[in-house]
Computed example of a mutant assay.
Amino acid sequence: MGEKFNNIETAVIHFGYDSKKHNGSLSVPIYQTSTFTFESAEQGEKRFGGEEDGYIYSRIGNPTVDILTEKMAFLEGGEAALAFGSGMAAVSAVLLSLTKAGDHIVCSQGLYGCTFGLLNLMQDKYNITHSFSWLSSVEDLEQVIKPETTVIYIETPINPTMKMIDLSMVAKFAKEHGVTVVVDNTFSTPYLQKPIELGCDVVVHSATKYIGGHGDVIAGVAVGTKAFMNTVESTTQKDIGGIMSPFDAWLLLRGLKTLPVRMDRHCENAEKVFSHLKAHPKVKAIYYPGDQEHPDYAITHKQMKKSGGVISFEINGSKQEAQDFLNALTLLKIAVSLGDTETLIQHPASMTHSGIPEKERLEMGITDQLIRLSVGLEAWEDIWKDIEQALNAI
């Protein structure tokens, strides 16, 4: 991690910021400005011409945002990073930068609903096609890859089924075929999993989730090589304009300082809640990367530091009983995000993944009985007490 920052707990607090360069301010200043002044017309010309470093306009670069991106690149083990106004702005900028009309994208069998919608938009408007695969083996990859494939796009753990994908295996295959691997690392964060160190090329985040951690910001981040990030910055980010505001960057910098502490508590609470959920008679099936009976447990153990804070489970009943369970909760909040201090719970089939046609949704394993639980930072006993009474009420 660097001579001074061998431990992520130290790096999230100190890396990338020198208070001496900002009037001794302990906290990163918020450069809440749309534009920057030049000392002369000639200086403006040089900056626009790339002959002189310096800020021009906050859509193109901002000091607060730059401190965030330097930190995120370091934490993920990449060369450079970019910040966006949402996770989907990051995903769309990366995928548009990596494809042209006629190209093909291989996707993990299960995606966030809006990513699924973006892929369909790209197919309808630009003839950039996509195929889904479980990506469980080299044989799976060989069956789905095409001569025109340029990207393999992966969620792991997959949202919301918590299926795991062996990133080292996929990265090795992709390099042999000249294909770029993009990994959505939102569920794990660089504290639990580092796809670039496992051989993948680009990492994207909905930084709204664990990176921010407090439910008060919408944001996205992408990390990769300096050359690729420069391409994204000078094309899809600059010209489409899905940038991050300075204040949102400041919120993420604040959130990052406690990321390891929060992730430890999320993971510890999830382990406790999982063990009780698994034993409850109203739970038909449970999907959690830390489950030693999970078919992908060996992958989890190999590439994740801990098993994360998200659990999905199926209610033993109908869609209505699943909704009745949610309605019976008193402490847990019904909401579609994750990674917040509060425990959040939702029904993917009718909420986050409702835009996916039923046939495709069921093929992804998203049934009408499936519930996604983002375990928060409360006392785990209180989280379980609320879940237990709601299960017993249906």
Rank of each mutant, 00 (worst) to 15 (best):
L135H: 06
L135D: 07
S136D: 15
S137N: 04
S137G: 06
V138W: 07
D140S: 11
P147Y: 05
T150M: 09
I152S: 11
Y153P: 02
I158V: 15
N159A: 07
P160L: 07
T161Q: 11
M162P: 10
S168R: 02
A171M: 10
A171W: 07
G178F: 07
G178W: 06
G178N: 15
V183Q: 02
D184V: 01
F187N: 11
S188F: 11
P190V: 12
P190R: 11
L192W: 09
Q193C: 14
P195R: 07
I196P: 04
E197A: 15
L198F: 10
G199D: 08
V203H: 00
V203K: 04
H205Y: 15
T208V: 09
K209V: 14
G215L: 13
D216R: 13
V217N: 03
V223T: 11
A227Q: 11
A227P: 06
F228T: 04
M229G: 06
N230V: 00
V232F: 04
V232A: 00
V232K: 02
V232N: 04
S234R: 14
T235D: 12
T235P: 01
T235C: 03
T236Q: 14
T236L: 10
Q237M: 13
K238H: 13
G241Q: 10
G242I: 02
S245L: 14
A249D: 06
L251A: 03
L253K: 07
L253C: 04
L253N: 14
G255M: 08
